[in-house]
Nucleic acid binder design. Structure first.
Lengths: 333, 333
DNA sequence: GGCAACCATGCAAACGTTTTCAAAGATCGT
DNA sequence: ACGATCTTTGAAAACGTTTGCATGGTTGCC
């Protein structure tokens, strides 16, 4: 059996109508007499006709396809977001073209451009860092884009996220209230927009305001192993409270701390910001900032459907509430 | 700026050649004089021409797109597989259309059919269970399909996996050698092909051969919470050695065991089969069967590229070696 | 019964490429 | 300088839909 055995033309011939009418039936156009519709539909069923989406895309200039740019799908943070996006996309009958840009095989802007060439109706972009080159492509195109859990410092793109400043503030205040004074911030990517524009300023301000010395920031700590390793440094510097952007790294840190015989949370507090399940399955359970990742994805995709359908958007920037979960790596009161 | 501002026709006009020649240049056809090629290429650059993939797809009947059917991308097991697939796909310049079928919004066979309508050049399918309805669609189409870490009991589809029987056997033998006699098997989906056709028979046979009573199988244990919960039952039944198909569930079980004051591995041994990072970040670290997930994905995708390129396949069924990692939830010797 | 208004249908031109075939140009040996 | 051969090009027909426009058929109203 060949790839395309039966076309709209075959259906038209068998049903003794024109292609136009078959097309109308397929697309649920109401301007077809009931009897005709029934006849066409029965032929469609009999011949197992399936419309060729590529031809539809070319003729209609709509592909019912959206592009998804994701840094790393093995990162649960992004996987969770993607799931929310996927579910809403499915509801609205959009397919997802996935571009994981973790590998360095292709430049990100080329990946985005390739999505555009595929004539996607819209795109959802997630990343720690929105590069100028990518931003430029977004500016050039008329295809709608929504950022999911991604910060746009230039500020003209639609986005869905949480209030990162507030989350950071809440975290550091808790450490301070718990009496910790030698605080550190452990991040994966120093240049991530979210860090540069939000978290680091809040952290540094707090340190300065409370005269806690020089702000200690540890970079490039993303994986479990990197977390384990950085603990030695933290200990050397007598850090007693730390905020960690990656859950995996936080897990590494607490496991290393336990091995070193350090008492958590009495002598060492940890707050994670990764928002993944990991915070609940390590012991002690991680106190953490938890973004509603699934919802962020879902809302972003819903926004995109509106943009693609020329509906009006009430808000360009949506901020969803996050929760701050106090668990076992901070003192409870 | 509009979606498609410049077409192949514009380039042809500006470069004073025919569309055919531009097409040749774009596709790297060597039958173009150098001077012509250069002229066309400079026009392409000047006009920022980008070929419309949809039109290319329609005309050439190749979309350079593959479909990926995945049960749940928030499951690290599948995410890891997908990453391997993605990387190889990128190398060969294929785009991925993602279909996460976790939600019940769409029947799986319809999802697959929709991928086919999109004219994907090939598909990679992963699942715990390959339903007859889906299998039928695969049989009907000429589009190549490769199964990744998925068992086809009918046995006619190409696939990449590990030797599940051997893995199961190794696991249960270890428990037995460690002196455990009250063994249990904890699985997420009782009807998963991999369980029905491979693991359960091996488990039941072993129990029978060694006269260990009635085989204890606990079903529907996939999540962390379900793992925590099932531990109570395991304890009640005095189980002292358990094989768990899901890492997340295994984590729940050991955490519950620790809370209950049960000594691992002295009084209770656990072997996980999920092959994810989770086994290393819980304490005690999980002894586990580790599938080379990334490689399975990569090999599957490589096989698919061969099938799509009409290359000959040396093996229809590929079995990759797995590793059996003894860690802290079994006695070490 | 006549006219307006509307419905249902068909025709044919898009949509932006690839690809086949034939023709035109270049190269070369003699 | 002449075919023969090979390379480079262009014309036009696909590919399988959608859609604007025209047309013929119905219905409704007075």
């Amino acid at each position: 059996m060949h790839k395309q055995d039966v076309t709209i033309y075959d259906v038209a011939r068998e049903a003794k109508v024109s292609m136009a009418t078959v097309s109308r039936v397929v697309n649920g156009n109401s301007n077809v007499r009931k009897s005709t519709r029934d006849r066409v539909q029965s032929v469609i069923k009999r011949l197992h006709y399936q419309p060729n989406s590529v031809a539809q895309g070319l003729a209609s200039k709509r592909t019912t396809t959206v592009g998804l740019i994701i840094p790393d799908m093995t990162n649960m943070f992004f996987a969770e977001l993607a799931q929310g996006i996927n579910d809403i996309a499915t509801i609205y009958r959009y397919s997802i073209i996935l571009s994981s840009v973790s590998n360095e095989l292709m430049k990100e802007e080329d990946t985005v451009q390739s999505l555009l060439n595929k004539q996607v109706d819209g795109m959802i972009y997630m990343s720690d860092r929105l590069s100028p080159a990518v931003h430029e492509v977004f500016d050039r195109t008329s295809t709608p884009v929504v950022l999911a859990s991604t910060l746009d410092s230039d500020g003209d793109l639609q986005s869905v996220a949480i209030d990162y400043r507030k989350a950071m503030k809440q975290a550091i205040e808790l450490l301070y209230q718990d009496g910790k004074r030698d605080l550190a911030f452990v991040i994966s990517d120093y240049n991530a927009t979210i860090n540069v524009a939000r978290r680091i300023p809040v952290f540094e301000n707090f340190i300065k305001e409370h005269q806690l010395g020089v702000p200690r920031i540890y970079r490039d700590v993303l994986t479990y192993d990197q977390g384990e390793k950085v603990f030695a440094q933290l200990q050397q510097e007598h850090v007693d409270g730390v905020i960690v952007s990656s859950d995996l790294a936080a897990a590494g840190i607490i496991n290393a701390a336990k091995s070193a015989g350090v008492k958590i949370p009495e002598d060492f507090e940890v707050i994670a910001a990764g928002s993944t399940k990991i915070s609940d399955l390590v012991r002690p359970k991680l106190t953490c900032v938890r973004s509603p990742l699934y919802d962020i994805g879902a809302v972003a995709m819903r926004m995109l459907t509106k943009l693609m359908g020329d509906e009006e958007l009430t808000h360009r920037k949506v901020k969803l509430p996050f929760s701050f979960v106090k668990q076992e790596t901070t003192l409870n009161r």
